[in-house]
Amino acid sequence: MALRFTFTRILPTLLLFAALIAGAISVDYLLHILGLAWIGRYCGFVGTALILISFIYSMRKRKWITSGSMKGLLKSHETLGWFGALVVLVHGGIHFYALIPWLALSAMLVVVASGLTGRFLLEDAQIRIKDQAEEMRKAGHSATDIDRELIGQSLLVDTMKQWRKVHMPLTMIFLALSLLHITATVLFWRW
């Protein structure tokens, strides 16, 4: 049972993170052997754009915008966040000089890990609620009873609420460090 849980639920999440790192290393290596390592510098712009676009979901969640389905925007937030992180990793490369960009990159990886954890928790909570509803149905409970029991999907809400208390501050730290890095680049770049 535990093994099945590990393989069907935990492993995909771990593999997504591993794929991010492996993908970034592969792309970086490819760029170097093709003599196109200079592209990495400009990947910073692309990665930042992808991550910023992924925040449309956050704006929709806070009702700053009202169009777009939550489910669809959440999916795009996950996808754009993952790809944006990959592009930023290629931009950073395997360099460890300046403290601020290095901390920003580390914060980004922590946020991605946190995001993948949230994704896992959301799916897990949804599955548990579905299983609970199924059990109640088999036990002969009416639909009204089931709804009343699972009203507000309290398990899901509580889980995500706790998770957000971690994910949001981490994201803010990442954004603050990125802002410092981008500002410094803008100030010192030859335009």
Partner: peptide, 20 residues
């Protein structure tokens, strides 16, 4: 908590840049 995290990270980072 979210905004405090942002301001703290920004502040500490800025001080680090000014000092080092």
């Amino acid at each position: 908590r979210t905004y405090i995290s942002f301001i703290l990270a920004l502040g500490i980072g800025a001080v680090a840049i000014l000092l080092f």
